[in-house]
Amino acid sequence: MRETTGERWGRRVVLTLLALFVLTPLYVMVTSAAKPLQDVQDSFTWWPSRPTAQAFVDMWSTVPLGRYLVNSLLVSSVAAVFSVTVAIFAAFAVSRYRFRGRGLFSVTVLSTQMFPGILFLLPLFLIYVNIGTATGIELYASRTGLIVTYLTFSLPFSIWMLVGYFDSIPRGLDEAAQVDGAGPLRTLFQVVLPAAVPGVVAVTVYAFMTAWGEVLFASVMTDESSRTLAVGLQGYSTQFNVYWNQIMAASLVVSVPVVAGFLVLQRYFVAGLTAGAVK
């Protein structure tokens, strides 16, 4: 089946327009990060009058970016590790066992993903504050509270994606291990998990990205010491000045790792994510 000339030109037009749409903000982010402050305070220019890395230096002192970065790294990685660990056990149960309530569990877990975040925000806020006053366990405005909250945000999709991966691993392997006398946990760790490494990595990246990008709860459940990047980056616009070049530089720095991770793992990530979304 050959492509007609019309189709070829149609394809080129569509792809050019979409690429321009996607690229424009990315281009502005990169070039503006290399601009001196004067450039971003005047009318827009396509190219820095004098390319400089000054914004990448200044951005650390305008706001406590280092602290926000450490908070985000800590919260996101701990949440991701816990979320994936919990999801592995749950996915193994759903994939390998028939039990009463299996369908109900899947439906409930997945549907929580669809509920509006604002629905949980007010009650959780009140619950965290009250647990704090009643028991002294600080969940409100602490990194622990954020970690616990975020790990449940990625849990439903993580479980769903892992069930998809586990299902694709032949049960013959399990049975062979069981014949050799391996119990369920040994089967999971020595047979199923090694075969599902790409899926586990993809799910970890997904869980990390979910926590790294969360805004709603971060805006309410943090204070100055536990603030994450999602809220911290707004500190560059003060009453007197908006340091757009530093905002773009900081945005670039916090975006590059997750975008790179996503693009490197694209294949596994996309497969797992669509399996979760489409099934």
């Binding site: 996607v22 990315l26 502005v28 805004v215 990047l229 975006s255 997750v258 975008v259 693009l263 996309v270």
Partner: peptide, 14 residues
């Protein structure tokens, strides 16, 4: 796929 991978706040701030 890049806009989807970007953290939402950096995309929207830009």
């Amino acid at each position: 796929l890049t806009p989807y991978a970007l953290p939402v706040y950096t995309a929207v701030i830009t």
